[in-house]
Amino acid sequence: MSGLWDRLTGQAERSSARTAKERLIVVLSHDRSDIEPGILEKIKNDIVRVISEHIDVDPSTVQIHIFSEGREQHLKADIPLPGPARRKRNL
């Protein structure tokens, strides 16, 4: 029965068209911005370094990526802040 439900909702299996779309979105975000994936990694490391001077962040949780809104490209950094216990006390 779940097979029928999956077919009804169009989620029977991961279709190749869906994979194509997702791959295109990633590759075009780099094509459009002319930023190689390696550069993003460098930017991420620099951001982590600067922020770490003030706040204790976990580098492994920091994410930086390019996303599109229409044909406009945005660089988005997501930096989860630590809980109060892990904050540096500068006062």
Binding site: S15, S16, A17, A20, K21, R71
Partner: peptide, 19 residues
């Protein structure tokens, strides 16, 4: 092919290219 999920649909291409 679009119907069985093996070809990009019109809406997908328009969403990606935004044109």
């Amino acid at each position: 092919l679009v119907e069985r999920g093996d070809m990009l649909a019109t809406a997908d291409i328009l969403e990606i290219l935004a044109v």
